[in-house]
Computed example of a mutant assay.
Amino acid sequence: MTPNKDIEDDALGRWLVNEMSEEERRAFEASDAFKTYQAISQHTENLVLEPYNVEVEYSKLKKSIAHKKESKLVQMRFYRRVSIAASVLVLLGIGSFFLLNKEVALTRHKTLQGQTKTITLPDNSVVEMNNQSALSYNAEQWKERRDVQLKGEAFFKVEKGSPFRVLMENGMIEVLGTSFNIKDRSYGTEVYCFTGKVRVTDSERNATILTKGMSAKIIDGYLDLNSKAEQMQVPLWKQGISRFENAPLADVIYELKGQFDIEIQVKSDISKRTYFGTYPNDNLEQALQLVFGSMQLEYIQESEGLVVVK
């Protein structure tokens, strides 16, 4: 409220109770505020009010209150039913979430540096794992789906039956009944078929079928269909031999570490060096000489489990 309005209200109040002097009264009655008051007063005098029936209005009030209570009760019942239904839906949703996201109990096998392992799958298929490898599968669903996940290298002898799949980061191998070897490392995947047929699919869904004596590679997620395979009866690693064809030297060192369970420290830049050749898996000194000696790289065995390449 503004100061002028406060003054006008005070003057009107004093005028109504006749507390003004004659001079103040004449001044106030000549003001715009007094003229406004007179107009309001004349208008209200002409108003005709309908008679107010207390009993009738009280009855209306009771009916209104009763209606509101009933409406509120109906609303409460409705909201209660909705809340119950919502709770059921939430519980069903939570239950479905846990059922769908329930962690599958996988059977897992792993080999460390210098280790190999032979396992028998639920259908009597046999897997021989090379060092630094990991394999897992769902034994509970094996009859419905013969799927295994592999990281590393392994030789498979698969019993005939439903499709058998080996899943890897680079692609997938699918067979019905055959024997084959998979070497899946960070630098690529190599597949060799010994018997039967093998379908090899890369991460881009390009596929090829291998028969006995054929091989394929998946490099950087893509199939290499020009791979030429040497005829073998068993995988080279099972013969005690490791072989590389223009492989990055860092990858060869990784295999050496895994095969002989050693640490290799490299002091020079080998990022552009590649190796073409073989080495025996049971003779560390000969393997080091064949790899580093042939590449004119100086090396020294500082301890039983440590090799330093200068």
Results as ranks from 00 to 15, higher is better:
residue 188 G to A: 10
residue 125 S to K: 04
residue 11 A to D: 06
residue 24 E to Q: 15
residue 138 N to I: 01
residue 91 L to N: 06
residue 5 K to T: 05
residue 205 R to V: 04
residue 27 A to Y: 06
residue 210 L to P: 01
residue 272 K to H: 10
residue 51 P to E: 03
residue 6 D to K: 11
residue 124 N to V: 13
residue 15 W to F: 10
residue 102 K to H: 09
residue 259 Q to D: 03
residue 232 M to A: 14
residue 309 V to M: 00
residue 17 V to W: 11
residue 97 F to G: 02
residue 96 S to K: 08
residue 214 M to D: 05
residue 151 K to E: 05
residue 76 M to H: 13
residue 7 I to T: 09
residue 237 W to I: 01
residue 261 D to Y: 06
residue 243 R to T: 04
residue 300 I to A: 12
residue 176 L to P: 10
residue 38 Q to W: 05
residue 21 S to Q: 08
residue 293 G to Y: 02
residue 234 V to Q: 07
residue 276 F to V: 12
residue 160 K to E: 09
residue 91 L to G: 15
residue 10 D to R: 06
residue 38 Q to E: 10
residue 1 M to W: 03
residue 82 V to P: 10
residue 284 L to M: 13
residue 119 I to S: 07
residue 205 R to W: 00
residue 49 L to W: 13
residue 240 G to D: 13
residue 146 R to H: 13
residue 290 L to C: 09
residue 118 T to M: 13
residue 278 T to G: 00
residue 252 V to G: 07
residue 209 I to G: 01
residue 24 E to M: 10
residue 51 P to A: 04
residue 68 K to R: 15
residue 251 D to G: 11
residue 83 S to H: 03
residue 162 S to N: 08
residue 64 S to L: 12
residue 293 G to D: 12
residue 31 S to R: 05
residue 188 G to R: 06
residue 208 T to G: 00
residue 41 S to P: 03
residue 133 S to M: 06
residue 229 A to G: 14
residue 300 I to T: 15
residue 102 K to D: 08
residue 204 E to T: 00
residue 194 F to T: 01
residue 6 D to T: 08
residue 267 K to P: 02
residue 88 V to W: 00
residue 267 K to A: 15
residue 102 K to E: 07
residue 204 E to D: 04
residue 30 A to R: 05
residue 289 Q to R: 06
residue 249 L to Q: 03
residue 289 Q to S: 11
residue 51 P to C: 04
residue 100 L to I: 09
residue 266 V to E: 02
residue 304 E to S: 14
residue 193 C to I: 09
residue 157 K to V: 13
residue 168 M to K: 00
residue 76 M to Y: 01
residue 122 P to A: 12
residue 170 N to W: 04
residue 280 P to L: 06
residue 266 V to Q: 05
residue 288 L to Y: 03
residue 308 V to Q: 02
residue 216 A to S: 09
residue 299 Y to A: 03
residue 28 F to R: 10
residue 207 A to E: 07
residue 154 A to R: 07
residue 65 I to L: 10
residue 43 H to I: 08
residue 97 F to M: 08
residue 56 V to K: 14
residue 286 Q to M: 06
residue 250 A to F: 01
residue 173 I to M: 09
residue 267 K to H: 12
residue 118 T to E: 14
residue 50 E to C: 08
residue 289 Q to T: 11
residue 233 Q to R: 11
residue 61 L to N: 12
residue 270 I to S: 02
residue 253 I to T: 08
residue 77 R to F: 08
residue 15 W to G: 02
residue 161 G to I: 04
residue 162 S to D: 05
residue 15 W to H: 10
residue 203 S to K: 05
residue 72 K to S: 08
residue 268 S to M: 06
residue 146 R to A: 01
residue 260 F to S: 11
residue 228 K to R: 15
residue 33 A to I: 03
residue 281 N to Y: 02
residue 188 G to K: 06
residue 262 I to L: 07
residue 262 I to Q: 01
